[in-house]
Structures are given as C-alpha cells and as structure tokens.
Write a protein that binds this DNA or RNA. Structure first.
Lengths: 160, 160
DNA sequence: AGCCTTTCGTTGAATCTTCAACAACACCCC
DNA sequence: GGGGTGTTGTTGAAGATTCAACGAAAGGCT
C-alpha cells in the first residue's frame, strides 16, 4: 500500500516538536553566549576542548574529533585553527599515518577548559536539568540516542 | 550554604546530555540538507514560511515573527530579504505603526511551503518520531517547554 | 510642546559554517 | 610495483549568522 497523503503531526506531536525547536534554539544561544561572555569560547570550541581533555594524551586525530562532535571535517579544521591561534591547541602530524594530523590540548587549553567547565555545567543545570524531572530527561536521552543512531547509520544521501 | 565545588553531571545525565547534543546536530543538519536539496529552502527559511502561512492574512510584523521562531531581529531581517529576493515573501509597511514592517507570504511562497511540507514532515517522522515512543517524545515536549519558558523569561544578561 | 527612553527594523562588517576542489597519502588487487 | 580507489585534512570563496551602530518613530512624563 503506497502512502500518498502526508500524515501530519497530531496536536501533541506538533506541540512537542515546536517546543523542542524553540527550546533548543534558546538553549544553545544561551549556553554559547554565556561561554563567550565569560570565557571567550564558543560552544563548539568548548566541546572540542572537552573531547580533547578526555582523550589519552589529550590528543586526537582530526577525523575522530570531527565524528565525536558530529561536525564536518572542514568545520573542525577551521575551529582547530582558531583554537591554535588562541594557543589552546597545537597540531602535530601523525606518526603512523602521514596524512593524519593530531590536535593536542596545550596547558593553556586545558586551563581554559577547566575554568569554563563549572560555569557551563551550571548553565546546563539551570537552563535544563533543574527544570526537568529526571525521568523526562532520561527520555530525552533515549530519543536522541535513537536519532543519532539512525542518522549516523545513514549519513550520506538516501538511496531511496 | 554557599555552593563552591561544581556539581558535575551524573553518568546518566552526562549520557543524555551528549546524546541530545549530537542527536540535535545530526537531526538539524539532516532536515536542513533535505530541504535544500529538494526544495531550495533552508530549515530557518522553511520555518518562517510556516509561521507566515499560519498567520491571518499570511502576514506578520517582523518582531512577532522573530519572537515566534526565537531568532534575532537582525537574523529575521536577513532571512526575509533572501526570501523576498526569491519571490516567496513581500514586505509592506505597517499602517498603524509607521516604524513597523509586515512580511507577507506571496502565492509562490505559499506554494513553495506546501510543496516542501510533506517531505519535511516525513523527515521529522523518519528521523525522530518513528524512533521514539510516544510517551518519551511527550517528555521531550515537556522538557523543552520548560526550557523555553525559563529562557524567554530571562532573556537578557543575568542579574545574578 | 519638549525631552527622554524604548522599540522597530535595517545596515554593513566581522565571524562562523558550508561547499567544492584539491594534494598527499593509504590501501587493495592484480 | 603500478594503477585505481578511497581517505585525510586543508584551502578559499560563498553563504549564513552575529554584532554594534544607527535612523525613525512611538510612548511617557512634565
């Protein structure tokens, strides 16, 4: 049976979808602004610092880093260039694969990240976690885990 | 009792928060790409067309439009300029308030929106709704309703 | 009326992201 | 070992968004 007529969202789905859209817009804007104002970091920059800080040796291959934050490689190249210019990260070429480049957190980068983290976490609590019931937030996790799985599986152009 | 040591996220919160971040990144990128590929519209452009299509007379004041999508006025000015250049929207100055400007959906704009909508909704289902339990998705709605309320209340610089 | 403050929407430059093209290298398979 | 193919990361230009500054009009107050 071919599905022709579009199935619109029901009232509750519509409402949730819009709440998600505007809530996410406001939340990301706010977390980004807070980081910029107090720590001269954008949210994407901060996330990259966090990933590096968690990696062994505080270093990661560019591609791995890009995948871990789900940004394009080009975007990560530019972001890392900015962070490098700011002295928070350094680049070195990879021993095993001569195409490869590793980004490595500098001491200044680690310090910047550690300075920003408490404020950032406070924001996440204040604007999100404190407002939601734990069970509801766990549901958010389940939903977006599924979304990420679905879209990572099927990243390229659909072969419908 | 003053709170000095940062309260980090627990394991489950951490997991949900990251899932939300990457899931949202992937989801927005994908919906945006789909709209661009098939309908030459960005996701923000599409959302503006939707808001206009729902308004009486298919027209809205710029500021109201900006609030409804939670974008800056400047951003909406630029977006509307692009849509106007594409013939999907027209501007007219407001009768009651001579500072005001109204954006109005053209017939071509309405048609573009109606052409895009079924594909867009299919994407929202396929990448999100179909993957989530209804109750979980309702929880997403509750959470981001609260977030939006919190951040709309307190839009400017915090007066901590 | 006159002044002060706020709101409205726009502008152009700075910043960030996407996009297409590319050089360098790895991998595979013959 | 020599293609062919895919991967890695970068580049610069084009596109989108943010930011600061602004002119114009509204609203409030005396």
């Amino acid at each position: 049976m071919s599905e022709r007529a579009p199935r619109w969202l029901n009232r509750s789905q519509q409402h949730s979808w819009r709440a998600y859209l505007v809530g996410t817009t406001l939340l990301m804007d706010r977390l980004d602004r807070d980081l910029r104002d107090k720590h001269d970091l954008s949210l994407p920059e901060y996330e990259i610092l966090v990933r590096l800080s968690e990696a062994e040796g505080h270093r990661m291959r560019m591609a791995v880093l890009a995948d871990s934050v789900s940004h394009s490689r080009s975007r990560v190249t530019h972001t890392i260039s900015r962070l490098e210019r700011a002295g928070l990260v350094s680049r070195s070429s990879c021993a095993s694969d001569r195409r490869g480049v590793e980004a490595c957190l500098t001491d200044a980068g680690m310090a910047a990240m550690e300075r920003a983290a408490p404020d950032h976490v406070r924001g996440v609590r204040e604007y999100l976690l404190d407002l939601a019931d734990d069970e509801d937030f766990a549901a958010v996790g389940r939903v977006f885990d599924a979304v990420a799985d679905r879209l990572v599986e099927n990243p390229a152009v659909d072969i419908r």
